[in-house]
């Protein structure tokens, strides 16, 4: 007997490869979206800082915009720099 697979439709869930489950700012799951967004994934991506902490991009931008003087990572208080 020979079994040939013509097609295999599989089911998967996607997730961000991050060191935490929840965004440190909005406390929502990374795999969900920030409170301002409706659609997760491409529309509400994550960004990593050089301190290796990551957040929803909308969350960290809001945070950075609200900081008058020093732009620091809300988790470790180091200066925030986007990881390339």
């Amino acid at each position: 007997m020979k079994v040939t697979v013509k097609s295999w439709t599989a089911v998967a869930t996607w997730r961000w490869v991050a060191n935490d489950d929840n965004c440190g700012i909005c406390r929502m799951a990374f795999d969900g979206c920030c409170p301002d967004c409706k659609i997760p994934g491409d529309d509400c991506p994550l960004v990593w800082g050089q301190c290796s902490h990551c957040f929803h991009i909308h969350c960290i931008m809001k945070w950075l915009n609200s900081q008058q003087v020093h732009q620091q990572c809300p988790m470790c208080r180091q200066e925030w720099k986007f990881k390339e």
Partner: peptide, 14 residues
């Protein structure tokens, strides 16, 4: 090797 199609879901919303 095998033609795979995927249904990729956002787990939080299902």
């Amino acid at each position: 090797d095998i033609p795979v199609n995927a249904m990729i879901l956002s787990a939080q919303f299902w």
